[in-house]
Simulated scan of single mutants.
Amino acid sequence: MFKPTFSEKQLPEDIPHPANCSTQHLVIELNKLLGMRFINGNVSSKSPIGQSLKRIIEYHNQGEYLRRDYEFSKMTMLVKHLKEIAKYDINLLNAFKKQIYRSGTRDKYFGVRFEINIAASLIRKNIKFTKSESPDFTIHKENKNIFIECGSAHLSKPKLGDIKYKICSVINKKSSKPYCSPTTALFIDTTNIYYNSLINEILIKRDEIREYVKNVLEHTQFGNVTLFIYILNKDLNRFESVYTRIDNKNIDETLLNFLNECYPLGEHTVYKFTIPSEG
């Protein structure tokens, strides 16, 4: 019997359990934050967010409560992140609203969703930043600028065998950009890669992926690569974002200090979990 063990450092967030909230309240919150109406026949109802809300109702009616709870937790985390961003800077929220509205494909939406996750994470850590396009975040620390670029590794369709190469592809593609330097950390959403490895019963081990990325990273000028994964922690009954951090030998000291403060190395072991196909 395949019994995976997941070991990563946690980004702690308390997401309300579905029993303590209602789908109607969730929809109202999303309508208010995004200015989008998620009702049948509306364009927004066909968006990834609208489809997720639809699945919550369908799973509930079908008695598939675990799937319902996952979708609900995913949307509740989105609401939480958007509220944190709105409190920090309403203009930043408006910028993300435009990006969500214009994200015509699932891939583009989940790219924006990952940036929202990182923005909210920085806000919770009281890190002041500027949102830009390339790289995605500029942080002024210790009298100099350091940067975060976001990326996503995913498969267009399920595939058997070793799929770590998709992470390598993201790193190599980004490494050709002008922002690739020892002052830049590359944050990659690898949820879909881990999901596919899990359903193939070949879950990527932490040490394995760390060594693999380390070897790829050494051939670039990036100071760091950090891999993020969304999981549903069954033991704690909550949705979490966890990460694996890999530093390059050439990492800038200011970037290293920032990562040690905000994304420290450590362990977070989860024995009972589910990995969604996307974040």
Score class of each variant (00 low, 15 high):
L217Q: 07
L255V: 01
N200C: 02
N192S: 13
I202Y: 04
L186Q: 13
P182I: 05
L256S: 13
Y179Q: 06
S197G: 04
L186W: 14
Q221F: 13
R210E: 11
V216L: 07
D247H: 05
S176Q: 15
Y179E: 07
I246P: 01
I209K: 01
P178R: 15
I188R: 11
E211M: 06
Y179F: 15
N200Y: 01
N248R: 08
Y194L: 15
I229K: 14
T191G: 08
E201I: 08
Y195V: 02
R238H: 07
F239P: 02
N224R: 11
F228R: 11
E253P: 00
N224I: 11
P178C: 10
A185Y: 04
D207E: 15
L255I: 05
L227P: 07
I199K: 10
N224F: 02
I246K: 07
T244Q: 12
L255P: 00
V216N: 00
L255E: 03
D207C: 10
N215I: 05
R238Y: 03
R245L: 14
S181R: 11
I251D: 08
V213Q: 01
S241D: 09
V225T: 14
I188A: 09
G223C: 02
I193Y: 00
T220E: 10
N248A: 15
K234G: 06
N196M: 06
E208K: 14
K205L: 15
K214E: 09
E218D: 11
S241E: 08
C180T: 09
F222P: 03
C180W: 13
I209Y: 01
Q221L: 15
D189N: 13
E211P: 03
T226E: 09
R245S: 14
T254A: 07
V216R: 06
D235K: 03
I229T: 14
K177W: 11
D207G: 09
E240Y: 03
L256E: 10
I193P: 06
L232S: 09
K177V: 04
F187K: 10
D207S: 13
L256K: 08
V216G: 04
D207Q: 14
N233Y: 06
L256P: 01
D247A: 00
D189P: 00
R210W: 00
T244K: 13
E218G: 14
N257C: 04
I202S: 13
I188Y: 07
V216D: 02
D252N: 00
K214I: 03
V213N: 03
I202A: 12
A185H: 06
N196S: 04
E208D: 11
T190D: 04
S176I: 14
H219Q: 14
L198A: 04
E240K: 15
N257W: 05
S176A: 13
N200M: 00
Y195T: 08
E201T: 08
V225A: 12
D235A: 01
I209A: 02
L256W: 04
E218Q: 09
F222Q: 07
N250C: 12
A185E: 08
S181M: 09
N233M: 13
K249H: 11
P178Y: 15
E211Q: 03
L232N: 11
T191R: 11
N200R: 05
D189W: 04
L217V: 00
K214P: 05
N224T: 15
L256C: 02
C180L: 13
V225M: 09
T184M: 06
V225D: 07
I246S: 02
T184R: 08
N248E: 10
L203K: 12
D247L: 06
L217E: 08
I231H: 08
